[in-house]
Design a protein around this nucleic acid. Sequence first.
DNA 1: CTGTTAGCGCATTCAT
DNA 2: ATGAATGCGCTAACAG
Lengths: 353, 353
Amino acid sequence: MTVTLADVAARARVSPATVSRVLNGNYPVATSTRERVLRAVDDLDYVLNGPASSLAAATSDLVGILVNDIADPFFGIMAGAAQSEIGGPGDGTGRAGGEKLAVVCNTGGSPERELTYLTLLQRQRAAALVLTGGALEDSAHQAAMTAKLAKLADAGTRIVFCGRPPLPDSDAVVASLAFDNRGGGRVLTEHLLGLGHRRIGYVAGPLERTTTRHRLEGHREALEAAGVHGDGESLTVHGPYDRGSGYDATLELLRRQPGVTAIVAANDTVALGACAAVRERGLRIPEDVSVAGFDDLPFSVDAGLTTVRLPLFDAGARAGRLAMGKEEPPPGGIATIPAELTVRGSTAAPRVG
Amino acid sequence: MTVTLADVAARARVSPATVSRVLNGNYPVATSTRERVLRAVDDLDYVLNGPASSLAAATSDLVGILVNDIADPFFGIMAGAAQSEIGGPGDGTGRAGGEKLAVVCNTGGSPERELTYLTLLQRQRAAALVLTGGALEDSAHQAAMTAKLAKLADAGTRIVFCGRPPLPDSDAVVASLAFDNRGGGRVLTEHLLGLGHRRIGYVAGPLERTTTRHRLEGHREALEAAGVHGDGESLTVHGPYDRGSGYDATLELLRRQPGVTAIVAANDTVALGACAAVRERGLRIPEDVSVAGFDDLPFSVDAGLTTVRLPLFDAGARAGRLAMGKEEPPPGGIATIPAELTVRGSTAAPRVG
DNA sequence: CTGTTAGCGCATTCAT
DNA sequence: ATGAATGCGCTAACAG
């Protein structure tokens, strides 16, 4: 039924080995022979059997990109950039040469699914792996991840972190690109303090996430440095990284602390929800309440949101190159990617009194 | 080095075949034997060799989801929904049982990359495929796609379209879920006409895309039915489905036709750019110019955008179930998914005079 | 219910 | 530069 390499060999009047060499291109083959083989491939419409090839060669051309939430442009931008570096341009014929198959896997933020995907990709003998997004700070899960990644690395899989802090005591990861979430959080709150805000609410991300913790720590560092002491935890509310959470948390915050003059959100998506809640309470932005986000997603400019810009595309592309071995890893395998304050119309000085 | 099925068999004191049966679960095995095998699997930390398994079984557990732009939530929402139906919940141990590996492939809207991805997935003997987004209306590409999909279907791959019109004369596709883009376009323009608008600009998507054409046709149907005749093509500008395009096209439109009282955008992302351009020209929305989008992405509620709601998540989930054979295909394999007008603050009656 | 036997289709030694 | 032979690790008939 299905055309095999042997069929191609027969038609080209060469041995299967020669066809294999032509297809993989890693071996000298006479030009005339190569042409004959390629013609046979086209004539027969031959498509390589990936599993057979992977079995024999003990490696596959699959490259996995793990993301927390594929519906969130934060991840989509990074994943798309990585994929563009991995997938290669194609030859315009759809014939597919030595290209890698870059695929995105959506964990939904679930640690179990994260591990399951790693196992699935381990099964496929994935050539490389890019893990994006913050890590879960649960010691059992961390240990499981470290063990799993070590096995993958042993089997020859190149692993790169993107927007994720390095794994302690592990050389399984080729390179870790971490965003300066703490620095970004600090500079954002410094901006608000500089405007005169003293009662600042914080709509944080989910607990036990490195991203959540680092951004919050930056926020608190800035407060402490300015000698501003919040009312303990009452100015901070945690929730998932989505719009609804920002909305709910902000309503809660405004109820608990009617005197807040500014609200910092865990990210831009959450900030949109925060804005909606503020306006629904009849308050104006920024006259009555300032609102700020994080990430600088494309829609944030339209929302006029003051935020912290993260070079998501560049980071994703770099991660893709690192995964492909097209770029040298940074010294020590670790790079911190700077975050830049971006001021827009959603923040201003608080009203006097 | 690496643990194989034979190692597990030896440790569990059974034959390799029995281990295979336990792992695949599609065959009766005594409970005690199964337990012994599973213990050996855990003891040895065995991970199935996917390529070997796929080679022997002539099928793989890979399911591909093709999207035009992974950074666009339009696709992210559908892909995430599909993936959640395909991937299964996992067993919480990360051990991975009979799960499918649902992966998202980003074509970037390029027809070449679309074909390349199909070839790559064909190589892997993908179990199923979900193609999202409109199709390119180029006869050469359409023919190539039809041929490629026919081969995939012959090889046993289940193919489902999601938000994509059915392929003519092809039974390769199990089911086609198409959005009612034409109906949505019509009802949206009817809304504007009902408000009193007569000079309506249209920022269309890229040429030769079914989505672009259908939405535009709906728009024109509404105009004709109302006896409104635009100035030929001068009220329509084409461009890619992104924010910058909406911005540029709208500036162009306002320059060419200063009298426009409303602008319809190809989708919500384009509409955001249109809004920015309108405001930059010193015009207010909706007092001076009404703006409308399409899709109802999550951020659209915050932008107060009048748009057409598409049930992206439900459609993606349904496509996932269809791809897995968990749901019966609609009659004739074709379903049209209704689009619903969603009126918000970005549209209003034009100023008199 | 379980073991034995044969390949699946290709990459890679070795030869030549 | 090319051909012949071997085995990658697993599943799917068959037996039993």
